[in-house]
Nucleic acid binder design. Structure first.
Lengths: 171, 171
DNA sequence: TCATCAAATGTTATGATATAACGTTTTCAA
DNA sequence: TTGAAAACGTTATATCATAACATTTGATGA
């Protein structure tokens, strides 16, 4: 599969439980390679591996879970190992930090500049990123009413994803 | 002053540096007393004191700063002392937790049900709560596009408050 | 080649935030 | 006045994150 055709790669909606997650991972890794190449940033083996581990699912992953995973693979790893890799990934927009969870999640669209807008299911733990530009603009407009100049916005919404809401409502 | 007339109590906009902050504190304490009385919740001396300490300014306060303050007053205090008080205040809507800062701030309008919408100045550290119902509705509408049912939303916006933006722009 | 520098990573220690678990005191009502 | 529940005290520990310094790696040019 040529990495120049990531057309349908997206996690901007909730995935079915049985979806082909390998495609999510591969797409994210290809996008990361591409982005780092363009920016002259080095996606080292360690950083790439940490990114892959962050993408193990659509749930946020804690730094120490990543640390355990690296150690399980026989790597020499300590907290700074993983935090440095995470800092790199954050600085290049490849992952996001979920403040409420103290955890990290892969960014499905590292190319677009965007606000962090996350829907977090309380039932299954799945998190998706919305990337709703109009909503971001609405936030900036509200802030402007208070004379506030926005640098960065972070929206974390808790609730129930379609699958879990159905389950809760129907049964 | 009768607690039934808290008409002009509000921190829904940025305060001048020299404003009469004692009024902010007194208003918040009066509102808390009132709210706890109505809900049959006990605003003990400790809880009241922690709330007052949280209101020392319009900046978020960390749990361990509160702990130090309590100890400085000669109280027996340990982390659970302050976290339990904070949990009480959170559960009754008297304070909010700022996830990004791992810190707490007083809620200027504990009576209204509302989303957490905060503007946080990177320069001076001041935080204000917006309480923009339309914005909350916009968030819910965006979430609904993804079939997501919202339970709770948390918006943390970083940027520059009017005073600091003026300083940065003008000088 | 190999000297050199910067970036990346390894390593040790510690700081900062938060909670578990259990004992004691207070409160309040029967 | 006693029994139960809530609040608070106390000790220990879990969890998240960074400081500081040593070593390795990789690119560059003499």
């Amino acid at each position: 599969m040529p990495p120049s055709a990531p057309a349908s790669r997206s996690t901007a909606t909730f995935q079915r439980p049985g979806h082909d997650h390998r495609r999510c991972i591969d797409g994210a890794l290809a996008a990361a390679e591409e982005r780092c190449r363009r920016r002259g940033a080095k996606l080292t083996e360690l950083r790439r591996r940490v990114l892959e581990l962050v993408w193990q699912g659509h749930e946020p992953v804690g730094a120490y879970a990543l640390l355990d995973a690296l150690r399980a693979e026989g790597r020499a790893a300590a907290p700074p190992t993983v935090y440095r890799a995470l800092d790199f990934l954050l600085s290049h927009g490849l992952i996001h930090r979920l403040e409420k969870a103290n955890a990290f999640i892969g960014c499905p669209r590292p190319d677009d500049p965007h606000a962090g807008q996350f829907l977090m299911c309380l039932e299954c733990g799945t998190v998706i990123e919305m990337d709703d530009a109009a909503l971001g603009a609405a936030v900036a407009a509200s802030a402007a009413k208070h004379g506030f100049a926005v640098s960065r916005q972070m929206l974390e919404v808790e609730g129930h994803c379609p699958s879990c809401a159905r389950g809760a409502a129907g049964g």
